[in-house]
Amino acid sequence: YKIYPYDSLIVTNSISVKLPKDVDRTRLERHLSPEEFQEVFGMSIEEFDRLALWKRNDLKKKALLF
């Protein structure tokens, strides 16, 4: 996945969300650098992957990456 800054990946309720063209809309968190991922989620990507799907989705919603 290509890395993008968190600010360019957050999704708000506005209709005209302009995400970069090559971003996987269903896995926005994968486009964060490991350092920024840790900062946003408070855990590593590996720890995040071990969580239940509902928990990952809940965290993504709170981080505006859903």
Results as ranks from 00 to 15, higher is better:
residue 1 Y to W: 11
residue 1 Y to P: 12
residue 1 Y to A: 08
residue 2 K to A: 13
residue 2 K to F: 06
residue 2 K to R: 08
residue 3 I to V: 12
residue 3 I to W: 07
residue 3 I to G: 02
residue 3 I to N: 05
residue 3 I to K: 07
residue 4 Y to P: 02
residue 4 Y to F: 07
residue 4 Y to I: 06
residue 4 Y to E: 02
residue 4 Y to W: 06
residue 5 P to N: 05
residue 5 P to K: 06
residue 5 P to Y: 03
residue 5 P to T: 07
residue 5 P to G: 05
residue 5 P to C: 04
residue 6 Y to W: 04
residue 6 Y to E: 01
residue 6 Y to F: 03
residue 6 Y to I: 03
residue 6 Y to H: 03
residue 6 Y to N: 01
residue 7 D to G: 12
residue 7 D to R: 13
residue 7 D to H: 15
residue 8 S to L: 15
residue 8 S to G: 04
residue 9 L to T: 01
residue 9 L to R: 00
residue 9 L to N: 00
residue 9 L to A: 00
residue 9 L to P: 01
residue 9 L to K: 01
residue 10 I to L: 09
residue 10 I to D: 02
residue 10 I to E: 02
residue 10 I to K: 15
residue 11 V to F: 09
residue 11 V to N: 10
residue 11 V to C: 10
residue 11 V to S: 10
residue 12 T to S: 13
residue 12 T to I: 14
residue 12 T to V: 11
residue 12 T to L: 14
residue 13 N to F: 05
residue 13 N to A: 12
residue 13 N to M: 07
residue 14 S to C: 13
residue 14 S to Y: 04
residue 14 S to A: 12
residue 15 I to Q: 14
residue 15 I to T: 15
residue 15 I to K: 05
residue 15 I to F: 10
residue 15 I to E: 15
residue 16 S to V: 10
residue 16 S to A: 12
residue 16 S to M: 09
residue 16 S to N: 14
residue 16 S to G: 13
residue 17 V to M: 09
residue 17 V to Q: 15
residue 17 V to A: 14
residue 17 V to G: 15
residue 17 V to T: 14
residue 17 V to P: 13
residue 18 K to S: 15
residue 18 K to L: 14
residue 18 K to Y: 08
residue 18 K to G: 15
residue 18 K to I: 14
residue 19 L to Y: 15
residue 19 L to K: 04
residue 19 L to T: 06
residue 20 P to K: 03
residue 20 P to G: 05
residue 20 P to R: 03
residue 20 P to W: 04
residue 20 P to E: 05
residue 21 K to W: 12
residue 21 K to V: 15
residue 22 D to N: 06
residue 22 D to I: 03
residue 22 D to E: 08
residue 22 D to M: 03
residue 22 D to Y: 04
residue 22 D to K: 03
residue 23 V to Y: 02
residue 23 V to F: 03
residue 23 V to G: 02
residue 23 V to R: 02
residue 24 D to E: 06
residue 24 D to N: 07
residue 24 D to S: 04
residue 24 D to C: 11
residue 25 R to F: 08
residue 25 R to I: 15
residue 27 R to H: 15
residue 27 R to P: 01
residue 27 R to Q: 12
residue 27 R to W: 03
residue 27 R to C: 10
residue 28 L to I: 06
residue 28 L to V: 03
residue 28 L to N: 01
residue 28 L to S: 02
residue 29 E to T: 00
residue 29 E to N: 00
residue 29 E to I: 01
residue 29 E to C: 02
residue 29 E to M: 00
residue 30 R to A: 07
residue 30 R to M: 07
residue 31 H to Q: 01
residue 31 H to C: 02
residue 31 H to A: 02
residue 31 H to M: 02
residue 31 H to T: 01
residue 32 L to Y: 01
residue 32 L to F: 01
residue 32 L to W: 01
residue 33 S to V: 04
residue 33 S to A: 11
residue 33 S to R: 05
residue 33 S to K: 05
residue 33 S to F: 03
residue 33 S to D: 07
residue 34 P to T: 14
residue 34 P to D: 11
residue 35 E to Q: 13
residue 35 E to I: 13
residue 35 E to K: 14
residue 36 E to D: 12
residue 36 E to L: 03
residue 36 E to P: 00
residue 36 E to I: 06
residue 37 F to I: 02
residue 37 F to Q: 02
residue 37 F to W: 03
residue 37 F to R: 00
residue 37 F to V: 02
residue 37 F to L: 02
residue 38 Q to N: 13
residue 38 Q to C: 11
residue 38 Q to V: 12
residue 39 E to G: 11
residue 39 E to H: 13
residue 40 V to G: 01
residue 40 V to S: 03
residue 40 V to P: 00
residue 40 V to D: 00
residue 41 F to Y: 01
residue 41 F to C: 01
residue 41 F to N: 00
residue 41 F to H: 00
residue 42 G to C: 11
residue 42 G to S: 11
residue 42 G to L: 11
residue 42 G to P: 00
residue 43 M to G: 02
residue 43 M to I: 07
residue 43 M to Q: 05
residue 43 M to K: 03
residue 43 M to P: 00
residue 44 S to G: 12
residue 44 S to Y: 08
residue 44 S to P: 13
residue 45 I to W: 09
residue 45 I to T: 07
residue 45 I to K: 07
residue 45 I to D: 04
residue 46 E to D: 13
residue 46 E to I: 13
residue 46 E to V: 14
residue 46 E to M: 12
residue 46 E to N: 12
residue 47 E to V: 10
residue 47 E to A: 12
residue 48 F to Q: 00
residue 48 F to P: 00
residue 48 F to N: 00
residue 49 D to H: 07
residue 49 D to Y: 09
residue 49 D to F: 06
residue 49 D to I: 05
residue 50 R to L: 14
residue 50 R to I: 10
residue 51 L to E: 06
residue 51 L to C: 07
residue 51 L to S: 03
residue 51 L to I: 06
residue 51 L to N: 04
residue 52 A to M: 07
residue 52 A to P: 15
residue 53 L to W: 09
residue 53 L to N: 09
residue 53 L to F: 10
residue 53 L to A: 11
residue 53 L to R: 08
residue 53 L to E: 13
residue 54 W to Y: 12
residue 54 W to V: 09
residue 54 W to N: 14
residue 54 W to T: 13
residue 55 K to M: 13
residue 55 K to L: 12
residue 55 K to E: 15
residue 55 K to V: 13
residue 55 K to C: 09
residue 56 R to M: 06
residue 56 R to K: 10
residue 57 N to G: 06
residue 57 N to K: 08
residue 57 N to E: 10
residue 59 L to G: 01
residue 59 L to V: 03
residue 59 L to I: 05
residue 59 L to C: 03
residue 60 K to N: 01
residue 60 K to L: 05
residue 60 K to W: 01
residue 60 K to A: 02
residue 60 K to T: 02
residue 61 K to C: 09
residue 61 K to V: 10
residue 61 K to G: 06
residue 61 K to T: 08
residue 61 K to D: 06
residue 61 K to Q: 09
residue 62 K to E: 09
residue 63 A to F: 07
residue 63 A to D: 01
residue 63 A to L: 06
residue 64 L to T: 04
residue 64 L to R: 13
residue 64 L to F: 12
residue 64 L to E: 07
residue 65 L to A: 01
residue 65 L to M: 05
residue 65 L to I: 05
residue 65 L to V: 03
residue 66 F to L: 12
residue 66 F to K: 04
residue 66 F to N: 06
